[in-house]
């Protein structure tokens, strides 16, 4: 028996999200009286792998093969399912991110394991196994019972505190075979922005809506994001109009994010927009209309013209941050 947590790497490195899911898996393993095993797929150096032990993984498996440098959903599923069987995994934990969403469903069918997707906390009960998850795009929650013997959970980003336990974990290296004949994901080109904070990873997000009136009004938002170490986002009409790139569109049909702080400027707060940001720890709204629905979702608000408020806000941030 074990809890197996799948950890992906970004150019050989882990990030906060990794430590969140390892912490979650360790805590769950503790409740189930078993141990947490981390499975890393692809090339990661020992020094990086060792970090997983700090968050409670008792064993770290590092599976490598040339073919694993590209995410081929079938090959990855094979590898994870193999180790899950070998290690007698009772629960498999993945991140509810791009990769987790690609793999968890395939694993589910491969192992006849029910999924609790996008969970934000530990199960409500272990027997029966019941998880708590967001449904109807954040307009409700459901208690979902997973009936199968093996369970798969995908953990929502920034929902679980990282816990350092300081375990000394053993590392097992496995040079594995993969079924070459099913490899089908031929990458022709990779386009990556470097040096930018990935929106879904950002602790602070500054977001602009149609109330910003024109793309020419964005520099203060960019400056604010820079000062706070945040990422930029926008509402759908803003990306539809081409004022901002599509990657920044948040909401039900865009990115779903959960930063510590979300600052919505000139955004009305439609249900579809809120669906993408409702898991933020704090929402600040700046809007000229005192009745804008965004205020019902915000903890802090300023009523007024964003174009006038932003320079003052920037000055205040500079002052308080001593810049």
């Amino acid at each position: 028996m074990s809890v197996l947590v799948f950890v992906e790497n970004w150019d050989g490195k882990f990030k906060k999200l990794t430590f969140e899911i390892v912490s979650y898996a360790s805590k769950l393993a503790e409740l189930l009286n078993t141990s947490a095993i981390a499975l890393s797929v692809g090339n990661v150096e020992n020094l990086e792998l060792e970090k997983l032990g700090k968050y409670g993984a008792q064993k770290i498996i590092s599976a490598t093969n040339e073919k694993l440098n590209v995410l081929d959903n079938r090959i990855y599923t094979d590898v994870i399912a193999d180790f899950a069987r070998k290690e007698g995994a009772e629960v498999i934990v993945l991140a509810n991110n791009i990769t987790g969403k690609a793999l968890a469903p395939r694993l589910s069918v491969n192992l006849s394991a029910g999924i609790g997707s996008g969970v934000g906390k530990l199960p409500i009960s272990l027997d029966p196994f019941v998880v708590f998850k967001k449904v109807y795009s954040g307009n409700a929650f459901a208690h979902v019972r997973i009936k199968s013997r093996i369970k798969i959970l995908t953990l929502a980003q920034n929902s679980f505190e990282v816990i350092e336990t300081g375990n000394n974990a053993s590392i097992e290296q496995h040079k594995i075979q993969v079924r070459d004949e099913i490899f089908n994901t031929h990458v022709q080109e990779v386009q990556k922005q470097t040096g930018k904070i990935v929106l879904t990873d950002a602790d602070i997000v500054i977001s602009g809506g149609r109330g910003m009136k024109s793309p020419d009004n964005w520099p203060p938002l960019v400056e604010l994001a820079g000062l706070l170490g945040g990422a930029l986002a926008c509402s759908r009409p803003v990306s539809d109009e081409g004022w901002r790139p599509h990657e920044e569109h948040t909401g039900q049909t865009g990115k779903i994010i959960a930063p510590n702080l979300y600052i919505a400027v000139g955004i009305s707060g439609s249900t579809q927009h809120i669906a993408g940001v409702s898991s933020s720890k704090y929402i600040v709204a700046i809007n000229i209309d005192k009745d804008a629905p965004i205020f019902a979702n915000a903890q802090y608000g300023i009523i007024g013209d964003a174009v006038k408020i932003l320079p003052k806000l920037i000055d205040a941030v500079k002052e308080v941050k001593g810049k």
Binding site: I115, G116, V144, K147, A285, Q299, D305
Partner: peptide
């Protein structure tokens, strides 16, 4: 099926927004 919804719950209302002088 492998899962079943036992019941639903509505989100807790957020605390009222604190307004700051513009």
């Amino acid at each position: 099926s492998l899962t079943e919804v036992i019941n639903y719950e509505m989100p807790k209302p957020r605390a009222a927004c604190k307004f700051v002088d513009p």
